[in-house]
Design a protein around this nucleic acid. Structure first.
Lengths: 336, 336
DNA sequence: GTCTCTTGTATTAGCGCTAACCGCCTCCTA
DNA sequence: TAGGAGGCGGTTAGCGCTAATACAAGAGAC
């Protein structure tokens, strides 16, 4: 490469001071008088000095870096989460190392190891499975600050998350109140045991004295719009008399909406639809879609704050789980 | 923090070998015989050793880290770009440091400095302005491998990008062939001098002997759906007799589509619409939207390959600009 | 039996930086 | 004028790792 970088030593040579004095001056130590500080500053400027963060990290034992693990950011809401987190971390002087696990637990393990090897000060993880958290718990027990962006009250790790169970519950309650009895569910992430939304769905139905009909449930492998479209087709093919639909993401909901449109069904008259995440595309859809809001700002703010707190702590405190109650945003897709 | 990490020294103490021997053994040096290698391996395993990447970087002078600068990843296509890049870099053993500039050139400068300070081996930059690249050129001249994800043939820096000028040209040609003469343009990023799409638009019109009517142009500040909606309202309020629309992103196009729908316009009969990026939401819109495809896979693959090439080179070769010709994906929004 | 040559390991130095400590001045006070 | 007290700066050590070099012991050559 042959990229010559300016070091403290170069400034020291140029100014005649020792490396240590230069270091102190550039860090505004009160022990250095104004004029030497100035001399050194100017020399640094002239040589286009940039501190070597790597060397600093080695001695200070902190990298001012946080690892962010997401499953996949094709989900628009995770995109917003990622960006908000990066911003908030940057405000606090931290950089973001970013990696995706593609929903594969093995991949996720590797990513976490890589982060550890790179000495990140802490990690924010959107786990691929919301259940199988042993591995992550171990990371915490090894003393690494970790905050999950989704998880259970009994996770044993810090969590800051939307309360999606509550979200599912609220959405179904809303549909029940509109008089619906045959409510379908297009779920996501089922195969990895992410059942919170389905649990909320079941609970609301149970309270209303309605049994869960498996014929109204489907769990596509992806969160894509195409997946929602296909899932809706499958549900309707079963002829289960469905009059309302809850979709685990707005992308799925948009796919379902498109299907109804193709078949000439009226929304919400023939089919009410509620989604999750409240993405902008849902608001401007052919029929604006009601959606369980994902409070990106609150989740990211609290998660980052908690993580920074953990990083600063002498010993990790008891894990704390913060579930944020979601708002249901009502739009035309579920209101006459 | 008090997080005790296992070091080579710990393994050395445990096995009785020297630190150096341990280092060599773990790196599979041929100078270490099989059985000592095994002893050391086992000890490393037992102590749960993870190499300290920071220390290694300090001596090897490479961090195996690449900095990725995006303007903002709320644009769904940039999201896909980010994820694909992370994946491809990971395959090649590189980690991704991620930062957003929010489209602010000053912010972008800071981010690049931060990356340099962190000794990244190279950078991939989606510049906030496609014109004012002096600052980035200087980074390259300082010997840092840089590849832009958007830019001009005469950028003076390596570029791998979609040829958006060509994309704008193709889209307008298509609309002209359908008989449209009054074609509107909702552009994006205008204020920062990102004029490629508009240039393609102008060129196609000029070739058809049609003058550009400024009454048909509008440049909202954002790429959001809401922005597209508002922009469409503004365009139509001007009463310029527009029969077709080119939008700089699919998000803008979706907003415009929504507006036509609210006003009872038929697409494409009353208003043809073509967008950019070919995101999934465009495909499944109320009227599926024709769009200039963004070849995420090709762009990211070529960009990463080029960057890795630059990182490995002894001296930076002449900058190379690769513009990928986009496909126009036709859908109902522009075809009877 | 001396002299290489090999094999396996230890020693040393150094990446760029910070932190702990040391030592020299000058100035003030008793 | 002796003796602290500061002010200012240098010296040394060390973060965890790698690379260059040194070295000891045994094998083989003559």
């Amino acid at each position: 490469m042959g990229r010559p970088i300016t070091r403290l030593k170069d400034i020291a040579n140029r100014t005649g001071f020792s490396v240590n004095t230069v270091s102190l001056a550039l860090r505004d130590s009160p022990r250095i008088p104004e004029d030497t500080r100035l001399t050194i500053r100017q020399a640094a400027e002239a040589l286009n000095y940039l501190p070597n963060h790597i060397a600093k990290s080695l001695v200070s034992r902190e990298t001012k870096t946080v690892g962010l693990v997401l499953t996949s950011i094709t989900n628009p809401v995770l995109t917003r989460v990622a960006q908000a987190i990066e911003l908030r971390l940057a405000e606090r002087g931290y950089s973001t190392l970013f990696a995706t696990s593609n929903g594969d637990p093995e991949e996720q393990k590797k990513v976490i190891e890589m982060f550890r090897s790179r000495q990140v000060d802490g990690m924010l993880i959107y786990p691929s499975s919301h259940r199988d958290l042993d591995h992550i718990r171990r990371v915490r027990q090894a003393g690494h600050p970790v905050v999950l962006l989704v998880g259970d009250p009994d996770a044993g790790v810090d969590v800051v998350s939307m309360d999606t169970r509550q979200g599912g519950y609220k959405a179904v309650r809303h549909l029940l109140e509109l008089g619906h009895r045959r409510i379908g569910l297009i779920d996501g992430g089922h195969e990895r045991g992410n059942l919170e939304k389905a649990e909320g769905y079941r609970q609301a139905l149970a309270e209303a004295g309605i049994g869960v009909d498996d014929g109204l449930l489907v769990a596509p492998r992806t969160h894509s719009v195409a997946g929602g479209h296909a899932a809706m087709a499958e549900l309707m093919a079963r002829g289960a008399g469905m009059t309302a639909l809850l979709a685990a993401t707005d992308s799925l909901a948009l796919g379902a909406l498109r299907w109804t449109q193709e078949k000439g069904l009226r929304v919400p008259d023939d089919m009410a639809i509620v989604g999750f995440d409240n993405i902008e595309f849902a608001e401007y859809a052919a029929t604006p879609i009601s959606s369980v809001d994902y409070a990106v700002a609150r989740v990211t703010e609290l998660a980052v704050e908690r993580l920074i707190g953990l990083i600063g702590a002498d010993a990790l405190p008891e894990p704390q789980v913060k579930l944020i109650e979601p708002e249901l945003v009502l739009r035309a897709s579920s209101e006459g």
